[in-house]
């Protein structure tokens, strides 16, 4: 965890700065910006590859939601674990995965993280603590609680982050998982990325409470609402939740209010929302643009530095796609491999 710096309380001169700038050094912050670009360009690259027929199936893009993935994962170690969602590319990258192996997975290749068995919807990198995206809405919630139970029982000191969308908060699994995490005071942070729509159905039409974080009250845990497109706000809420979890005080529910620019999946005709709504989020609340502006204002980076990051990320993406293209396809003879654990 590079760059974890002193708490702002000990640095009176920085007291008025947003949390992120009090808590992390400049290199870490530039790294966070780079990760946001990496997520954005990865998804644009995946989308383009899909259009060109290089990737089949479907995918759920999180373009516009990068601040929540990066802000949440910024303070985590490889030993801290996450469960992710069908819209999970950003989580995977934010947690530290290599985009080459992610592209390879999307291309169905043996060099992919899931050896071509999982694809976009099950992307995972266990080595960096990502237990996997999930094709079932709410499917990862109880699993995250189980991982947190392991952390508590083994006294590992690790925390578990459970990403889910607004749609999942109406699944029974959400309620069962939050309740168990609370009664057992488990080190898990529930992160709801509320992008306003469960497929086409708006949160207003689907959810009885105004904020999903309001539901935390039912499970006697803090419910925190943050501007999900503002990295610093996300990171601050996450930092407090992590401290609480590591101290054994139990779970927190963080609701990141955000927005997805693309449709739900590749079949979406965007009939349930207006162009104006999408435009407004893209032009006025883009998480990368806002973060870049903030970093420049605070002298963390200049325009040349930003351009250098973009170019470097573009190179990494191009190399990743090339790696995926050149990687071998799985052998059909191995179709049944990995159904069960191979035993001697």
């Amino acid at each position: 965890m590079a760059g974890k710096a002193k708490n702002g309380a000990e640095k009176p001169n920085g007291a008025n700065l947003p949390f992120l700038y009090r808590h992390y050094d400049h290199e870490t912050l530039r790294g966070a910006l780079r990760k946001m670009h990496l997520i954005r360009q990865f998804e644009e690259g995946a989308e383009e590859s899909y259009m060109r027929g290089l990737i089949h199936g479907t995918m759920h893009l999180s373009i516009g939601q990068e601040a929540s993935a990066v802000g949440i994962c910024l303070g985590l170690t490889d030993e801290d674990q996450i469960t992710s969602t069908h819209r999970g590319h950003g989580h995977c990258i934010a947690k530290g995965a290599d985009v080459s192996r992610m592209f390879a997975e999307f291309f169905g290749k043996t060099t992919g993280y899931c050896r071509g068995r999982g694809g976009s919807m099950h992307i995972a990198d266990v080595s960096t603590g990502n237990l996997g995206a999930n094709g079932i809405v709410g499917g990862g919630l109880p699993i995250a609680v189980g991982a947190a139970l392991t952390a508590k029982k083994t006294k590992s000191g690790n925390v578990v982050v459970c990403f889910f969308g607004d749609g999942a908060n109406n699944e029974g699994a959400f309620h069962e998982a939050l309740n168990m995490a609370a009664i057992w005071k488990l080190p898990v942070i529930f992160v709801c990325e509320n992008n306003g729509y469960g497929m086409s159905t708006s949160v207003e039409r689907a959810t009885a409470v105004k904020n999903i974080a309001d539901r935390a009250a039912a499970y006697a845990m803090p419910g925190v609402i943050v501007e999900g497109n503002v990295v610093s706000d996300v990171a601050q809420a996450m930092h407090e939740a992590t401290e609480r979890a590591r101290k054994g005080e139990g779970p927190t529910l963080i609701e990141c209010k955000t927005y997805r620019y693309r449709g739900h999946s590749k079949s979406d005709r965007n009939r349930y929302r207006t162009k104006e709504e999408i435009e407004e989020w893209m032009t006025e609340r883009d998480p990368i643009e806002m973060f870049e502006a903030e970093l420049q204002e605070l002298g963390v980076i200049d325009m040349a530095g930003i351009e250098a990051i973009r170019a470097d990320v573009a190179r990494e993406i191009a190399e990743g796609i090339e790696f995926a293209k050149e990687s071998p396809m799985p052998d059909v003879a191995n179709l049944e491999k990995y159904v069960y654990t191979e035993q001697a």
């Binding site: 699993i143 991982a147 139970l149 392991t150 083994t154 699994a173 069962e176």
Partner: peptide, 21 residues
């Protein structure tokens, strides 16, 4: 003892198993 939460309880068991218990 778990609450009466078969779906959640089974999932917690799965999560604990995947992470080493």
């Amino acid at each position: 003892d778990t609450p009466i939460s078969e779906l959640g309880g089974a999932g917690v068991a799965v999560g604990a198993a995947v992470t080493g218990l």
